[in-house]
Design a protein around this nucleic acid. Sequence first.
DNA 1: TATTGTTATACTCTATAACTATA
DNA 2: TATAGTTATAGAGTATAACAATA
Lengths: 174, 174
Amino acid sequence: MTEIDTSDGGVPPLAPEQLATYFALMEAVSLLQHRVEQQLRADGGISYVQFQLLARLVQADGPLTMTQLADGVVYSRSGLTYQAGLLETAGLITRSTLPEDERATLVTLTEQGAALFGRVLPGHVEVSRVLLFDPLTADDVRHLGEVMTRVRDHMRAQPPRSAAPRKRRAGTAR
Amino acid sequence: MTEIDTSDGGVPPLAPEQLATYFALMEAVSLLQHRVEQQLRADGGISYVQFQLLARLVQADGPLTMTQLADGVVYSRSGLTYQAGLLETAGLITRSTLPEDERATLVTLTEQGAALFGRVLPGHVEVSRVLLFDPLTADDVRHLGEVMTRVRDHMRAQPPRSAAPRKRRAGTAR
DNA sequence: TATTGTTATACTCTATAACTATA
DNA sequence: TATAGTTATAGAGTATAACAATA
């Protein structure tokens, strides 16, 4: 096994520890995501994206507009419309026009939606406990939570895209 | 905003801090993944999965069989075949039969593949630095790396699926 | 004109099952 | 019979661009 060389004329290399941390983080979360998707699919027939949308509505404790609902969950308007369509067809939400601004669509959690979320959550919590929290001390959790909250807020504050000049464009695996 | 209630007859609830940590982790990494995908697509025309496969070959410093290559990256044989097909078409890898075991396929990184990886890596490193490492202290990185390595190893040791009894099955958003 | 959301469409990716070939 | 990989196929999801309607 060879160590990946991140040195480059232009960019300062990452410390090896940073690269290892990055890969461990990405791999661990990928595994977690995969299991979580399986659990949600098996227990409630929903994806993690759909779970997140329901979770937002539960947290908001009231209707949200599409835009409010989208936030960090979905990265294109049409993607959200698609997901909302699925959730509405499944009877988990309803959509209506917001009277104050008739451009906006108000999304409301149905009883069924709330019930499904409640039904799915214990298994979800169980998966995250077994996979993520079991090998961690209370201190690890505290620190991880603090760090990831900071990172998340930092990312959210970051300019959405561009601003960083894109480089070459290779004709490759599409 | 309402706090999500994870209490349930069957399952012990997560501490609120755990749930918040879990959500912060998932959200932060989702944002990171999204940006990383964009960078790889823009700079090299590859996806993160493809980047991972190339990275494995670079790390291995020699050919790997499909099975060795798959490991934590892809969760189905056919998915790997698909990705390998794309990489081969793009000239980034070649596939050949392993002489010792003619069932196996040997995957070799081409010069082009190595070159592309080298070309894409700086930008990749840059994104992870700006998004992930900038708001972290050296100590945070050390701790995060240690913790996520432990979690990853724990997950990898976990039985792949089933073993945990699945529950109800609701007719819902498919 | 800008904003909210939807639709049409094309594309990427994943997974299951059936299949081939070798061990 | 088990293992390695491929193929066929179907389905889920995403994004871009064009569009409609309201502010």
